[in-house]
């Protein structure tokens, strides 16, 4: 038994301690690289009043969209929320509060949150609705707005491979927000396709060091595709 062994063997254990009104940071872009089984566990648990921080909110019936029918999310911080009819209904009726945040600002808010940086200045959003109520300051003659970091009570992450110590490797563009989310949770839970023994991953190829990871679980994934676009073979 090693104190660094992060592996848990049930989803109940993986999401233990999640209670109503907590903030959850989720990795994923669209439906790519989303922690789909951890989301299902949150649905199963029935936790409510959640603030979700995620680039998107899934689609009807998949991904974070699963948490909408039972009104488990009270607020979402996201950059793009366009693929979901139930989402739109709840937003328009005021049941769901939405804080639209530029994608790069969202990524940086997570990165800063995980790195102990409380806020940062950025040119993104100056002169737009995003700047409303935020501190503005000039550096070298250019205007910037102050954006605050985000830390989650939980972060839920999907990686490709891990060792038992929680060192993570992501695969292709399923990486997206996942490494950033992993740093920004008070409790970071990661689900992966394969778990190997410490020493079996090349230290040079680890994307996220295990220090950020609290719990690790192995599972299988549907990996639904949002826009299947192909070219004919032979071109």
């Amino acid at each position: 038994m090693s104190g660094f062994d992060k592996v848990v063997y049930s989803y109940e254990e993986a999401m233990a301690g999640l209670t109503d009104n907590m903030t959850i940071i989720a990795g994923g872009f669209g439906l790519c690289g989303i922690p789909e089984n951890l989301i299902s566990e949150i649905k199963h648990k029935g936790t409510r009043g959640l603030t979700l921080v995620s680039n998107n909110c899934g689609v009807d019936g998949f991904g974070l969209g699963l948490l909408l029918p039972d009104r488990q999310i009270s607020k979402i911080i996201a950059s793009y929320v366009g693929e979901n009819a139930e989402f739109e209904r709840q937003m328009m009726s005021g049941e769901l509060s939405v804080e639209l945040t530029p994608q790069g600002t969202l990524a940086e808010k997570m990165r800063a949150g995980g790195a102990g940086i409380p806020a940062f200045y950025t040119a993104t959003g100056v002169g737009t609705p995003v700047a409303e109520g935020k501190d503005e300051r000039q550096f070298n003659g250019r205007d910037y707005i102050l954006e605050e970091a985000i830390v989650g009570d939980f972060a839920i992450v999907k990686a490709w491979k891990a060792d038992r110590y929680g060192n993570l490797v992501f695969r292709k563009t399923a990486r997206n927000f996942n490494p950033l989310a992993a740093t920004a949770g008070k409790i970071t839970v990661v689900e992966v396709e394969e778990i190997v023994e410490p020493g079996q991953l090349d230290p040079d190829e680890i994307h996220t060091p295990g220090i950020y990871v609290n719990r690790l679980i192995q599972s299988t994934f549907e990996k639904r595709i949002e826009q299947r676009t192909t070219r004919p073979a032979g071109e």
Binding site: S79, Y80, V81, L100, P102, G104, T105, A123, T124, V126
Partner: peptide, 14 residues
Amino acid sequence: LIKGMGGAMDLVAG
């Protein structure tokens, strides 16, 4: 139409 800015605000500012 309220879908969000995605990366557009970052792109035009950067």
